[in-house]
């Protein structure tokens, strides 16, 4: 048995022990997610536009994460609407970010690894870089919008007579809590992905001027910052939607 199969089995057993019947949606969701990402890679290498492919599959991945998590349908819909809006903003952001940062492809650090490859593959690495930035932010966007929507819904249910102004204030307060920990998840996630690169920079004594202009370093930093930006945008968007949702659909009465 290979390492992946064994780890997947360990995960499955633990999920059954801890979550019981939710195992199906969590584990199944993870597998479907993997299939979608794998399809993105295959489609890009077959020549579809990387950014458009990532965007379309991104909408599916968001739906998968949000509706496979145990939230009720209305909260899920709010979270999904917020996530899609944030992704639209992101698409509008990554294009200029890539244009000015020129973060595409591989750095000098990869030279040895690339030795045997033909790099003239006829696919725009600029667009691939946009796609990668977009995809890596999706999970964080979905998680933050689910957390925001659930917390706000609970608040509205418990205190139905809250004024609109108070709701906005509480939204900021709840958002602050969620953001603080969400940034940590992103930060360590990215560092965990690129620890080797940071050891490389320090071991080879990159000067500060070399470092802050290095393509790979900046690409990585840009990814973290863009994800943080995206996650932060879910706070006002969810609050806004929840406030309007409450008046139009009257969550409270339906309870």
């Amino acid at each position: 048995m290979g390492v992946i199969t064994s780890l997947a089995l360990v995960l499955l057993v633990l999920l059954i022990l801890v979550t019981g019947k939710d195992t199906f949606s969590i584990f199944g969701g993870l597998i479907l997610n993997f299939i979608l990402i794998f399809m993105v890679i295959i489609l890009i290498s077959l020549g579809t536009s990387p950014l458009i492919t990532a965007f379309i599959f991104g909408l599916m991945i968001l739906a998968l994460i949000i509706f496979f998590s145990p939230v009720d349908l209305k909260t899920g819909l709010v979270a999904y609407l917020v996530s899609v809006s944030v992704v639209l903003v992101l698409v509008a952001l990554v294009v200029p970010i890539q244009h000015f940062g020129q973060l595409q492809g591989f750095g000098n650090e990869s030279n040895e690894e690339l030795g045997g490859f033909s790099l003239l593959i006829g696919i725009s690495f600029q667009s691939i870089s946009c796609a990668a930035i977009l995809l890596s932010a999706l999970g964080a966007i979905a998680e933050a919008s689910i957390a925001m929507a659930s917390a706000l819904k609970e608040l509205i249910e418990q205190t139905p007579d809250l004024k609109r102004h108070d709701l906005y204030r509480d939204g900021v307060e709840i958002g602050g809590k969620i953001m603080g920990t969400a940034y940590n998840t992103l930060f360590f996630g990215f560092f965990g992905g690129y620890l080797a690169l940071f050891i490389w920079f320090i071991e080879l004594k990159y000067s500060p001027s070399l470092l802050i202009n290095d393509k790979l370093f900046i690409a990585e930093a840009a990814s973290v910052l863009v994800s943080m930006l995206a996650v932060t945008l879910t706070v006002p968007l969810t609050t806004f939607l929840m406030v309007h949702w409450r008046q139009k659909f009257q969550i409270v009465q339906n309870k």
Binding site: L15, V18, T19, D22, S25, I26, G29, L30, N33, F34, I37, I61, I65, I66, F68, S69, P70, V71, A132, I133, L135, S136, A137, L138, G139, A140, A142, E143, I146, A147, S150, T185, L186, G189, F190, G192, G193
Partner: peptide, 16 residues
Amino acid sequence: QIIGPLISILFLIFMA
């Protein structure tokens, strides 16, 4: 309720 989305955050970062 939070396990699923949290796993996806890291999964997408590592995969992307």
